[in-house]
């Protein structure tokens, strides 16, 4: 076991951040803008195709007594409808398609990111912030269209004494503006942190295994840890998709049912 072989293997082990690199697969330039098909966009297209196939072939032969596949699709749909009903109420039914698409896309993207050699689309803040900014603008527009100028009363909690208004209104505005940031950073940070952790522990397994002797035996420990982390990451992937969809319904509720 010489020093040079150890060095060589270290350089062969992928760095923990390499998995997030965006690589252009097919160069497209439109009017000076780089619109290349990257591994990120390729995975997004793949996810959309998977979701489409899952929904289409699940419901192609819709029967009164659903089969296995059909009941999976119906179960997911019932879950989202239940979430919207619970958080928005009957007025929220028209938003079920939007919430459902959002939920299933993020869910599949998160879980697909756990496949070996895959790229996690939601581990980029550009993707998650695009979702969150869209939801944010949508919430404002829906609020103004449904309630007109009265919607701005949202920034003034009922029963505020007049002398506290100059303080409360900026606080409420900042609180409202921080919504897209919390929404996007939560998903991005959870996915990125988990994947870095997985890569680091996997790196430990390789470098301990190469070190030979007693170290190879110790290498079993990070391997066991990685297996446990993988289970945790699976939970995180599903829970974060659920939290993202849930908070979207909560935010939409504030625009649709003006409570205060």
């Amino acid at each position: 076991m010489s020093k040079t072989t150890t060095k060589k293997v270290y350089s062969d082990v992928a760095g923990p951040l390499e998995q997030f690199d965006i690589k252009p697969l097919y160069d497209i330039n439109v009017a000076g803008y780089d619109l290349s098909l990257t591994n990120s966009s390729a995975w997004m297209i793949g996810i959309l195709l998977f979701v489409w196939a899952f929904m289409f072939f699940g419901m192609r032969k819709a029967e009164l007594v659903p089969g296995r596949w059909q009941s999976m699709v119906e179960g997911l749909h019932e879950f989202v409808v239940g979430m919207v009903d619970e958080n928005i109420g009957p007025k929220g039914r028209s938003f079920v398609p939007f919430i459902f698409s959002l939920f299933i896309f993020i869910l599949v993207a998160n879980v697909a990111g756990l496949l070996p050699y895959s790229f996690t689309v939601t581990s980029h803040i550009a993707v998650t912030f695009a979702f969150a900014a869209f939801i944010f603008v949508m919430c404002i527009l829906i609020g103004i269209f449904r309630h007109g100028f009265a919607w701005f009363g949202f920034f003034l909690p009922p029963g505020t004494p007049w002398y506290l208004m100059p303080l409360i209104i900026p606080i409420e505005i900042i609180s409202f503006l921080s919504r897209p940031i919390t929404l996007s950073v939560r998903l991005f940070a959870n996915m990125t942190a988990g994947h870095i952790l997985l890569k680091i522990f996997a790196g430990f397994v390789v470098s301990l295994g190469v070190a030979g002797g007693i170290w190879s035996v110790v290498g079993v420990l990070p391997l066991a840890m990685n297996t446990a982390l993988y289970a945790l990451e699976l939970i995180v992937a599903i829970v974060q998709a659920y939290v993202f969809a849930l908070l979207t319904t909560v935010y939409l509720n504030d625009s649709i049912n003006l409570e205060h």
């Binding site: 919390t182 950073v185 995180v236």
Partner: peptide
């Protein structure tokens, strides 16, 4: 455990995001 972790990151972020936006 995953749920508690999700809840923890959510609460931490609420505070940080408010300060950043302000």
């Amino acid at each position: 455990m995953g749920n508690a972790f999700a809840q923890g990151t959510r609460l931490a972020l609420e505070l940080v995001a408010g300060i950043l936006v302000g």
